[in-house]
Amino acid sequence: MTAFKSLSAAMIKGFLRDRMTLFFAFVFPLMFLVVFGLLFRDASDDKTKIAVVGDGPVVAALDKTGALELEKYDNAEVARQKVHDGDLPALVVAGGSGVELTFAASDQVKAQTVIGIVSGVVDRINLAESGVPPAFTLEAKPVEDASLKPIQYLTPGILSWAVSISGVFGAALTLVSWRKKQVLRRIRLAPVGPTAVLSSRVLVSVGTAVAQGVMFVAVALTPPFGLQLTGQWWLALPLLVLGTTAFFAVGMLVGAFCRTEEAASGAANLIVMPMAFLSGTFFPVENAPGWLQAVSNIFPLRHMNDGMLDVLVRGKGIEALVVPSAVLIGFTLVVGFIAARVFRWED
């Protein structure tokens, strides 16, 4: 066996036999995915459902807004009873040129939403009918994330986060433990180059990242979560690899400065946790204040996350990889260079 292969095998065995690292690489992020995935399952499915009787341009336009869910009734009395019973917040009866809106007074917020939407639609149709050019125009653009169900941004986010955990912790803890246990000095006494040692460890991290990707996506695809992959989801693979190398470099830097495993995992946590929150792991960064979004750009996780979202759930193609890949490669080179400079074989 070559040194590279046997070192990789040794590290994979060590990894698989260590319950702690397995827990933090797989179970821990998966717990977040499951909890948040179930918690937020219906959060954006809150289209208001109203009853509709009759047909016409107003009903068609209402349907097109996508903001309301229309439940058709043939009989206005039955529908009115529904509103009366509190089953539905409002009823629209369309006939001829008149539109009659009945709403339940109990839920003011829903009622106002419905009134707003319906009157907006009616006004627009009136305006169009009159042929008068509008004095003011409103241009409303959807923010992309508004259309993402929570599971759609949680899966790429938590996957990237999990890769950052296993990358940073894996590199830092291996380095510290090998230095402390003198394995590094012992390896140095053997006729193998540092490249074989380093690349075998990186390979193990990349393998872990791919395993994490398969596992999390598989779980998220199951019915309780209902993840929908779009287009070229396999483009996530290069991102997994590049993300791993970037986080591995961070771990090497952490490992170079820490003497004990405890110090190394503390430092790794201090880096990974804030980075996860600021990079859109648990909520879309677009919802954060502008300055926070700017700050989050310094984190490789932010860029990995952006790329993952684009290729996994936004249906984007290879062009979406350009910026994240460039940032991750640059980050790996710069941090890796620094880590190599401060690297120590022994304490």
């Binding site: 070559t2 394995v183 000095r185 053997a190």
Partner: peptide, 28 residues
């Protein structure tokens, strides 16, 4: 040259056999 360091240095979680095979592989 063969060296045993003062603090014994082993790969984590590997068996006696695997330790020897891993160190051996470093020397072919």
């Amino acid at each position: 040259i063969g060296v045993q360091l003062q603090a014994s240095s082993f790969f984590e979680k590997l068996t006696a056999k695997e330790q020897l095979q891993t160190f051996g592989s470093l020397y072919g």
